[in-house]
Nucleic acid binder design. Sequence first.
DNA 1: ATAGCAAATGTAACCGATTACAATCTATAA
DNA 2: TTATAGATTGTAATCGGTTACATTTGCTAT
Lengths: 332, 332
Amino acid sequence: MSNIRDVAREAGVSVATVSRALSDPDKVSQTSLNKVHSAIDKVGYRPNMLARSFRSAKSYAVVVLVPDITNPFFSQVIRSIEDRAQQKGYAVLLGDTRGVPEREKEYIRRVETRLADGVIQLRPDDPNRRFEMPADIACVNVCGCESTSGPRVRIDNRGSARSVVDYLISLGHRRIGVISGLKDNPHTVDRLAGYLESLEAAGIEFDKSLVAEGDFTTWSGLNSAKQFCAMPDKPTAIFCMNDEMAIGAIQTLKQHGIRVPEDISVTGFDDISYARYCDPSLTTVTQPAEEMGKLAMDMLLRLIEGEDLAQEENVLPAEFVIRKSTAIPRKD
Amino acid sequence: MSNIRDVAREAGVSVATVSRALSDPDKVSQTSLNKVHSAIDKVGYRPNMLARSFRSAKSYAVVVLVPDITNPFFSQVIRSIEDRAQQKGYAVLLGDTRGVPEREKEYIRRVETRLADGVIQLRPDDPNRRFEMPADIACVNVCGCESTSGPRVRIDNRGSARSVVDYLISLGHRRIGVISGLKDNPHTVDRLAGYLESLEAAGIEFDKSLVAEGDFTTWSGLNSAKQFCAMPDKPTAIFCMNDEMAIGAIQTLKQHGIRVPEDISVTGFDDISYARYCDPSLTTVTQPAEEMGKLAMDMLLRLIEGEDLAQEENVLPAEFVIRKSTAIPRKD
DNA sequence: ATAGCAAATGTAACCGATTACAATCTATAA
DNA sequence: TTATAGATTGTAATCGGTTACATTTGCTAT
């Protein structure tokens, strides 16, 4: 494989001229520029970007850490990050951690060893919680929550949850069940806070038995809903903390001969693409996945440039979407 | 940031000894090993992998090209590729091309410029079709079809389609509609071939009006199904070429008051996770996404090692799964 | 014609690791 | 004791770019 010296020889100029012709053409005369370009064509030169990265001590790559790439919401955010990164000349190193701290560390190491210039973390909890994220690493958190620290972009989970529950209450619901994420997951905490705020504002007393713990998977939604089906005084509505669990819950309700939304209303969160196509289509909260990814990437680039974002927080608006899975409670 | 020379000075040995202590400890005495390790701890040394990559002319990264990462089937395959890559010490550079050849070229360039050691392409068509893939690039194709060339791993699309249609015929269906992908998509070609084989084997004449062209999106399934709803002699079953279109089609049928499967049976392809949870759950074909990703990564590594895989093809078995969206045709 | 300045170009050091080769040390056998 | 093989270590070249600094060229103004 030919290198810059071969090109220089072929063109009859110095290596410095070739280098400049490629990275800063304004500094080179038109004559030399032509000679260099035809020499490049002739010897079939491709610059060795590894050498360039090495010299400039920048890899032009960023790591994106995600607990599960098959989660449709996450993959939307990642697509947007990748798009922005590509525009800016950066590569995206995909890090599917499956929630294993060891794998996370492995990827953080890539930044420490200069294979990546920074990290975007897609996950709810504080990045410092599980292990010490070295302070000198450029890191942006997306999809975080109120307790997340460091530069971050997120939506107002509490407020969004509150609009969902407010809406259910406005329809006339008083017994509103919840299928939550894992109890200590910060999204769960924030969204539950919104639920409680809403109940309190309406003067409805909180009933602990109406909260079923899931883990954001369809399967857990399916199981958690069974618990409501078995109750003598079932809730008339169920607030699910994501769409997957809502879809699972609807499945269970149908199997028990309970109609949605006539007998029980169900709401989701995230607005994954199936939310629009399931039966009934899901009343949910649209997270601006695209905007979140783009913004996170832009913040990370600023961080890499050396800007001090410290605790800069971007809280994006989420949209509440009413579809067919909610209705006024049945009178009986 | 400290480098190998700092460590050498601190440990009182040469840089070569430090380098060997890290990459080939057997060649170094226990005494030196200890000195080196404590020196590393003392100066907080992290090896510069960029320098290592540069020197060894290997980036230990592979590009994964995918038309759309939000497609749940693709993201499953990618997760498996990433898992395997991580195990083998490789990083995955995500390339979401959105089907734009220009973006694809951009990523191929990364391999040419030594930023990645090879490429895995997730897409049905021949990688050489749209533009010339340089011959010296290590490239493996996944999710390809019968006409794909080069090293590849795929399932038997024709055979799988045939088992689906054979099953529908065995239930008693004679008018079987198809919602296909784009006409020139090789998956469409292979799966349609399976459909035709099946009809022929059963002595059923092919009716061109029973094939509706979609594009593998839910939305297109939704629209294509309308065309069947408008027919005076509707098909009694619809073979959809992926799950998304099947889900869209079911949605449309329901809206027209047509019951699935009582009035019309519907089948999908891919077995995305939602296929199990939609209503009715989908009879479909399970592609071994995990196995495909793992195998593709292993093949790529062998290719990078210099092995000649030429036209090695791995055709994996796909499993036909019967769920609730299919039944015997209604008698009337 | 020539001084003066800017533009263009060239030379060579440099980034941080790896590794060929040479030099040194250690242990065993004669 | 000394020769010698084998183990360990050190020196310095090397990978392919970038860029500081020195030098040359080209042009304008006097």
